[in-house]
């Protein structure tokens, strides 16, 4: 099998194995309250970004604007936390509890880790390979593969359309404001629906039909290396969690917080 050329060994891993492992890791970060698994995933992503900056840069450029909104959400979370009050930090006129900081940062890190893994997946899996892998599992073309094809093409198109529309607005000297934004969003929605219809039409007109057998241009083959990679990643992830638990205890931070709180109470 001819593997995709690109930076990083991650691109050479079987697409379905990669999806399964990354899904497992994201699920782990979602289930564990403690931020250590999330931080570990972010560190892995950062390492990959350093090696393959060109590949990751475009995704970060696209996601950049959403970071502001998420930062605001986290700040509101910290300030509006309504749990049991424990240790408080005074930051200027603001008073922040340690629990609020902990829970909000945990949520922040979990979402950030999930986004990082999604970017990593999108940048290292070719849609053609993934759909071929799904089709080979089912031996027929499937709705899921069709959905992946359309979404993979649609998301960059939507962002490009938005950029173009904002450019058109700028050239016409139209000032930004709620009504202009609403109009642009409406147009973007209409253009996106039209584009989605065109894409689905293009896929169908090129002979893709649900439930019909297909051949594969670069048929993905499950190799021993892929399974070894998956096992190594999962063992490493488990090692980090277990090691942290044995050294510090998963709830150490909060336990300390509670003790301090009871101390204050006395």
């Amino acid at each position: 099998m001819s593997r995709s050329r690109g930076c990083g060994a991650l691109e050479n891993v079987h697409p379905l194995v990669k999806v399964a492992v990354i899904a497992a890791l994201v699920l782990t970060t979602a289930l564990f309250l403690h931020p250590v698994p999330s931080i570990a995933l972010i560190v892995v992503f950062a390492g990959h970004a350093i090696v393959c900056w060109d590949t990751i840069r475009r995704s970060l450029h696209i996601l950049g604007p959403f970071a502001f909104g998420f930062f605001g959400f986290t700040v509101v979370n910290i300030l509006g936390y309504g749990g049991v009050e424990t240790v408080r930090y005074e930051v200027g006129p603001l008073s922040i509890s340690r629990e609020a900081l902990f829970f909000s940062l945990s949520i922040f890190l979990r979402v950030l880790a999930s986004v990082c893994m999604a970017v990593l997946l999108a940048r290292t899996v070719r849609p053609g390979h993934l759909t071929a892998a799904i089709d080979r599992v089912r031996h027929r073309s499937s709705r899921l593969a069709l959905l992946i094809l359309v979404i993979h093409r649609l998301i960059p198109d939507v962002l490009l359309n938005l950029k173009t529309m904002l450019g058109v607005r700028r050239i016409r000297g139209v000032r930004g404001g709620p009504s202009t934004t609403a109009r642009i969003v409406l147009n973007l929605l209409a253009a996106t629906l039209r584009r989605a219809e065109s894409l689905s039409l293009a896929v169908t007109s090129r002979g893709y039909a649900l439930g019909v057998p297909r051949s594969a241009y670069r048929p993905p083959v499950l190799r021993r290396d892929d399974l070894l990679w998956a096992a190594a990643v999962l063992v490493a992830a488990s090692g980090i969690i277990v090691g942290w638990h044995l050294s510090f205890g998963l709830d150490g931070f909060l336990a300390g917080t509670a003790e301090e709180a009871s101390g204050i109470g006395r």
């Binding site: 849609p127 053609g128 093409r153 065109s198 293009a202 090129r206 893709y208 051949s215 241009y217």
Partner: peptide, 20 residues
């Protein structure tokens, strides 16, 4: 709005795959 795949060769291969 007709292109589906990221690479030129994959775009043409998509039609061939669908025709087995």
């Amino acid at each position: 709005s007709q292109s589906i795949m990221p690479l030129v060769e994959e775009e043409i291969a998509f039609v061939l795959e669908n025709r087995c």
